[in-house]
């Protein structure tokens, strides 16, 4: 790159690319900043910039019991769905990661398909099946539905972590007389743990944020946070939702910062 002549032509290219990139990055980040600022408004509307600043809507949020109830449900379902996804997903990843067999490739495609298929169609299908077998909508049906759409993240990240594992490590361990279980516990698991954690984190976030599956598999007793927020927004533009959004944005930033430290999340998703 150093020897390249800085012609006008090269300059125009780099200027355009850099400018568009900066505009795109601003476009990505701006909405979250706008919501954060508006959530501190002292007024009753979502006017931007706000007429004044206060914490009144955060105080309002403190008493919004419907939102608390929905948040609690979402959290419980997300934790169960993540746990189930990790147990099922890591085992499946171990089986299919190093296998070239056709069955392994087919299973891989099957496990990944919830990522591209319209989740709303799956939500309706799951509801119809549960009502056919006489299983009423409950936290259990929600956990099952969420697990189907969240497990791909665990499988993908675990497979990626296993692919980076040196086979010679496992062979040496076996040669030195370690059992498969011992090798798994002491060598494989510690090395792939960041990948599992990263996958679990993304699975958790996508369950907590899931709408299309919850839409069909929930009822009033199992209200879920994103749906509660959506319905609140359909009715009226409530500033309390801005405060809740502020809380969610800050929580997300904090969790991503922790995950970046623990698992190197950013490198993991670009490799």
């Amino acid at each position: 790159m150093s020897g390249r002549k800085r012609t006008l032509e090269a300059f125009s290219f780099e200027l355009v690319m850099t400018l568009v990139a900066i505009i795109a990055l601003i476009l990505i980040i701006a909405p979250s900043l706008v919501v954060l600022i508006v959530s501190f408004t002292s007024g009753f509307s979502l006017r931007f910039p706000p007429p004044g600043y206060s914490l009144r809507w955060y105080a309002e949020l403190w008493d919004a019991w419907q939102l608390h109830f929905a948040a609690k449900n979402s959290l419980i379902v997300a934790l169960w769905a993540t746990g189930l996804s990790v147990v099922l997903g890591v085992a499946a990843a171990l089986a299919i990661s190093r296998s070239q067999a056709l069955s392994a490739r087919l299973l891989d495609s099957l496990f990944m398909s919830p990522l591209v298929l319209p989740a709303l169609a799956f939500g309706l299908a799951a509801l119809m099946l549960f009502s056919l077998v006489g299983l009423p909508v409950s936290p259990l049906t929600l956990v099952i539905g969420h697990t189907v759409v969240c497990v791909p993240y665990v499988v993908r990240n675990t497979v990626a972590a296993l692919a980076q594992l040196e086979p010679t490590l496992l062979e040496s361990s076996a040669v030195l007389g370690a059992s498969r279980l011992y090798t798994f516990r002491r060598i494989v698991l510690p090395l792939i743990r960041p990948g599992i954690i990263a996958g679990a984190f993304i699975a958790f976030m996508s369950s907590f944020d899931n709408v299309p599956v919850s839409l069909f598999l929930r009822d009033a007793a199992t209200d879920m946070l994103p749906i509660r927020m959506w319905q609140d927004l359909e009715g009226k533009l409530d500033v309390t939702i801005a405060a809740l959004s502020g809380v969610l944005i800050i929580a997300t930033v904090a969790m991503v910062a922790v995950m970046e430290r623990v698992t190197g999340l950013s490198r993991r998703l670009t490799n």
Partner: peptide, 19 residues
Amino acid sequence: VLLPLLTSVVVRTFAWIVI
């Protein structure tokens, strides 16, 4: 790039209503 992916979709959409 990553933050919006992990931020709630309702929150991101809500931001656009404000904008």
